[in-house]
Design a protein around this nucleic acid. Structure first.
Lengths: 319, 319
DNA sequence: CGGCTACCTAAGCGATTGCTTATCGCGTAC
DNA sequence: GTACGCGATAAGCAATCGCTTAGGTAGCCG
């Protein structure tokens, strides 16, 4: 029984699949499968069993979850305690859904750390489904993105999803303020960032609402890249309104009128309960409510070069 | 950071020496030293440092103790939870100081298990100093022996320490009810069981009170063996009064009158707090207060063959 | 039926763990 | 001083861990 094995088990149980757990841990699928196998063997219990509809916990598995989860939590706490005792800066691992991670998190953390909060901050991007598990297992301290029901979530910013295209795109001609018919949207090429392929994300739901078929999606490594392609007239793109206003003002992009009401949404900050989260998480949370943070978020634009956007790196904690 | 390493660290910190921790775990000293080294390396903190008078915890070490201890506890709890979920009998690991382990524990557990308590019981013997740590780290569920201040201890039986010798021993001649002079005691050969070399044990204090020098001790593997040698006239032996009454009645041994008041002492049962101990531990605890248990303890004699007395086997829990 | 998805198994690798015995260093105590 | 007790360290060993790539295998969908 190793901490790695317990971690693998908890994530499989929480995320409902070996594949998802492997992704969250940043390792291959057999690595997780193997860890799970070893734990099963050691305890003499299947722990989780496959069913037609996902995975199901055995009685023993259900009992093991809270224990294993707490052990993993304590392991992180142990490392933090030692760091703290030595006066080293706190670790603050922030995860965010891709759009937030790309445009807002770097700026926010830059300001946050420059405000004298002695932290060593890192950002990772993740899917909405994963975020909850990452926070519960203390693979991350703070999550920014969707509301997470089983954690302490608080709205930090409103945003609006719109459809953009080049002003030279043929769909934008002759509209005269009328909405683009839904049938026309389905046939277009859609240029999307990573968020669109995260089932359950706001962007994904937004596109589903517009009845955009999946095969029409051309996925880019970042929103910036997708919007750049849209500006080149290669197709339509879903976008966060205030992030593309510079491009709209410049005339590189224009907002397409689509049917239905405007899609206004919220980004939230999520952490564990106050008594279980790290001090740095509490401080960041508080910071996100300040006017300063608000300002940074609204000012957020593509000034952050895409190259500075790093893919998620969770790595195992106990090497 | 492995559980083995954390366990090693906690025991070293609790027992105050690598040697003692190694003994408690039933492994060699370098095994513990190595585990500690690995943990130190991993956390980048010395954790414990040698001082002229034992070991001292660093700041980080002090913070790590409760976290590590809880992790080890949870690991045991995890295994127990799975066992329970599968309907397997509970494990009940009893540790006792050598005399209790030799004469009383086997009988008590035999009756206890035969009373329909579905448990898989095992007995180990230990020194008084170790017992507390073993219970705290859940290497054992119940301790029988001395009172342990930082645990829940309850007296279960009174006993009296006496000095016995063969009636044919030269010291026993011409006493006429007078006490044996202290000076005479110091020069005798003393035949003792393992308890006498456990510094801090009642027997050890008893002998110290009689001013018996350590070099006079001849240590046997069990009390039975020591008393058998005493019956052969090879020397004096400290003994638990009610355990030697059969021999006294048979005339194989006699109780020597020594100076000072009779030494009446108590054996206790110790466990963790009610909410942290295993159900089986609670049941055994309750059982030990019943007349049935009392009867077994008083009846306890050397009817249990020495060969059935097993040396302690703690083994690491996470292989 | 083919294709897809998800999980498991196999094989293999390098590093680590966990243990041993033997030896060295160091401070204490006689 | 020298011996002793205790701890770290060295060397060596089998087993395990943790990861990889590659190749099944079972269920579901069109």
């Amino acid at each position: 029984m190793t901490l790695t094995q317990l971690e693998a088990f908890v994530l499989v149980a929480r995320l409902g699949s070996v594949k998802a757990a492997a992704k969250a841990l940043g390792v291959s699928e057999p690595a997780v499968s193997g860890a799970l196998h070893a734990l099963r063997q050691h305890l003499g219990d299947p722990l989780v069993e496959r069913t037609p509809t996902g995975m199901e916990l055995t009685t023993g598995g259900k009992r093991l979850i809270p224990i294993a989860s707490q052990m993993v939590n304590l392991a992180v706490e142990a490392e933090a305690a030692i760091r703290d005792a030595q006066g080293a800066p706190e670790l603050l691992r922030v995860v965010a859904t891709s759009t937030v991670a790309e445009f807002m998190a770097p700026g926010l953390l830059a300001v946050f750390t420059s405000r004298g909060h002695a932290v060593e901050a890192s950002v990772g991007s993740t899917t909405e489904a994963e975020m909850s598990a990452l926070l519960h297992e203390r693979l991350a301290d703070v999550g920014i993105g969707p509301r997470l029901p089983d954690l302490v979530s608080e709205p930090i910013m409103r945003y609006r999803l719109v459809v953009v295209a080049s002003p030279r795109h043929r769909l934008t001609a002759g509209l005269d303020g009328h909405a683009v018919p839904a049938s026309a949207l389905e046939e277009q090429e859609w240029l999307v960032g990573p968020a669109a392929v995260d089932r359950g994300s706001d962007v994904s739901r937004f596109l589903a609402g517009l009845r955009v078929p999946e095969r029409r999606l051309r996925v880019f490594g970042s929103e910036s890249a997708a919007w750049a392609a849209a500006a080149d007239g290669e197709g339509l793109a879903p976008a966060v309104a205030h992030l593309v206003t510079p491009d709209v003002r410049r005339g590189a992009l224009m907002v397409l009128p689509v049917q239905g009401p405007p899609v206004d949404l919220l980004w939230y900050v999520s952490t564990l309960d106050p008594d279980r989260r790290s001090p740095a998480a509490t401080r960041l949370r508080r910071f996100l409510g300040t006017p300063d943070a608000m300002h940074v978020m609204h000012r957020a634009d593509r000034s952050v070069p895409v190259s500075r956007f790093r893919p998620p790196v969770y790595g195992t904690l106990w090497s």
